[in-house]
Design a protein around this nucleic acid. Structure first.
Lengths: 112, 112
DNA sequence: TCCATGGTTCTATAATAGTAGAAACGAAGC
DNA sequence: GCTTCGTTTCTACTATTATAGAACCATGGA
């Protein structure tokens, strides 16, 4: 992940409405949700939601799938994990990770 | 970490200049850097840098220490790790993490 | 106390982002 | 073909953010 990709992802999530949309879709899981249902769930005007969906999609945080007249959005976990990895990599970049990062909580490991 | 804290941290990092400042300080490590040195390293006007340092500090991404006339800023790893944990927690929140998160890379574990 | 230096706040300006009504678009069914 | 429904684009307006010159505040040294 490049600086500009990280910036896009961060900017994507750094907004109340978009974070809410993203979290909703994360909860919903891989099947995703059509735009109208998202708008209703969060009480957003269609145009407003559409604006944010575009932002999130451009940041590659969402992926899109058309099913009939419905357009389903779902969270792109890959990008979010890449962002987390990018930040973590930045944090520790090779040297004295124990000293520098010790105060923080340990990152979670995927349940296996 | 609450939604508003995550939002503050994300907004803090979601800006080119601030991300550059933060990464510079992350590299520099626990001793930090005085404001003037940061401004010089990144070619920023003092007032501009000061604005961003305040933003980052308010988001608790930086901590401050005064030494004589110099004011040292250093990255607050704790907050960054909390943000990562928040996003990860969001990602997996309890259910079907293997399916949902599998495509992404595995989060790094602290070197022990 | 006076000066030089390191930083911040004040102020104004320019640029960007968020919101949402209204119009337009495209797919599905008649 | 026409109509309906889900969604996006157009448009305009408002609010927020980024930038930096200039004035200001603190600290340390002569």
């Amino acid at each position: 992940m490049e600086v500009k990709d990280a910036l896009a992802a961060l900017a994507g999530l750094a907004q109340e409405t978009r974070l809410a949309v993203f979290r909703l879709l994360v909860e919903r899981g891989p099947e995703g949700m059509p735009a109208g249902a998202i708008a209703e769930a969060l009480g957003l005007a269609n145009a407003t939601l559409s604006f944010h969906l575009k932002e999130l999609t451009h940041a590659d945080l969402l992926s899109v799938r058309q099913a009939g007249r419905f357009i389903y959005y779902r969270a792109n976990y890959r990008t979010m994990n890449a962002l987390v990895a990018y930040l973590t990599e930045n944090c520790c970049r090779g040297n004295t990770c124990d000293i520098a990062c010790a105060p923080g909580p340990e990152p979670r490991r995927k349940a296996s």
